[in-house]
Design a binder for these strands. Structure first.
Lengths: 224, 224
DNA sequence: GTCTATACCACGATAGAC
DNA sequence: GTCTATCGTGGTATAGAC
């Protein structure tokens, strides 16, 4: 006779922890729900009871830390805005407000924060209308808020040019975040990303230069 | 009585075409072999006969266009090197030699080239020791060749700093390539990437600025 | 409300007939 | 070279125990 132990919220959190780790390590599609319930030591059907589906579980994983991440980013940006007087914060400060909370998550001793960051970085590149919607919903307000800040920091930049700069930057940022902890292997031992502050400062310097660079305008507006 | 038709090489190419399209559209893990054989109108076991496994099929897809892509990149870089005399090509030219052949593939009328480029861009972010090995094998020589060219174009740059610049650039490039044809949707109609030359020039300008920017050096080497 | 057992169909892979 | 049959595992769904 197997005893039925009612754990309630514990079960939910155990599933979220296991899913965060496995999704971050192996990617969403490559992770099976059976491996998640095995790691969490719960029954297979518990996922469907608490979340409904694999995709809904992913959204719950994103939600758990995503709200806090968004709050920290807004908080930091607001602090920089307050300290900059009327002219708004510098580009470097805007980038720092966006990146520092994410990089800090990378150093979470439990490893869960790093896995979460890797997962988000990978999701930006994954196709499937399914969770592009969830992704936009999660990070849309952040993109809007930081886009507005960048627009003020780069006077005279067309909306279209700013989009491309943010687009290129998103690629570099996502690549850096999803590779968290793997740089030593990727660079054959040449480099290391264990010093998060170092990675942060270098990424900011790289992106700020690109943000300030004038992008060529093609077409009848400028001619050749 | 169903007739057995022997198609030989046709079957192999049909599978490669279908796999390229579906891997590029949906990603590797999310694409089932059954959907591939349905699109190619061949039997399920044909994949295993011609390629051996799903992962081997992926490598075959990468191989088919990858060799030509590498050749075009090397060719372009060599031409720039020949035209630059003893001092080597400019950063912009090196980036163009790397990116232009890939962007041009994006405009392939059949759509296969675009799907291939999307696939490669996505693979850079996917985990799994499995095809990181295949990926390195496919693009290792290219990275080495272009890294050497960049090193000469950026005198006085430490190997470590150069790695990070190439690392950030790889993220931006992969993001741009894997989003080929999706920018209109991603930007809510604000921008479009149907003009490949425009995307190319803007990406090069963005990256060249980052490449030239001095990255902060942390640690005892420079102090604060 | 919480959890278990179990069944369902699609998946990647393989063996062997033709 | 091609096909069918089959294996173990994947995501999903539900009935019912507690």
């Amino acid at each position: 006779m197997i005893e039925t132990v009612v754990r309630g919220e514990d079960t939910k959190q155990a599933i979220l922890d296991a899913a965060e780790n496995l999704f971050g390590e192996q990617g969403y599609s490559a992770t099976s729900m059976r491996s998640i319930v095995a790691a969490a030591d719960v029954n297979l059907a518990a996922i469907h009871y608490h979340f409904g589906s694999k995709e809904a579980l992913l959204e719950a994983v994103l939600d758990r830390r995503g709200k806090l991440l968004e709050h920290e980013r807004f908080e930091l940006l607001s602090r920089f805005e307050a300290g900059a007087g009327g002219k708004g914060p510098e580009i470097e400060q805007i980038l720092e407000a966006f990146l520092a909370p994410a990089i800090r998550l990378t150093r979470d001793p439990s490893g869960g924060g790093r896995r979460f960051v890797q997962l988000v970085g990978r999701l930006l590149g994954e196709p499937g209308e399914g969770f592009r919607k969830a992704f936009t919903q999660q990070f849309g307000p952040t993109v809007a808020r930081f886009g507005a800040a960048l627009e003020r920091a780069l006077p005279g930049t067309l909306k279209e040019e700013l989009f491309w700069k943010m687009f290129f930057s998103a690629g570099a940022m996502a690549h850096t975040l999803r590779s968290a902890g793997l740089v030593r292997a990727l660079s054959d031992g040449l480099c290391d990303d264990s010093d998060g502050e170092m990675v942060l400062k270098r990424l900011i310097a790289f992106l700020a230069a690109g943000m300030r660079a004038p992008l060529p305008v093609i077409g009848p507006i400028q001619g050749s």
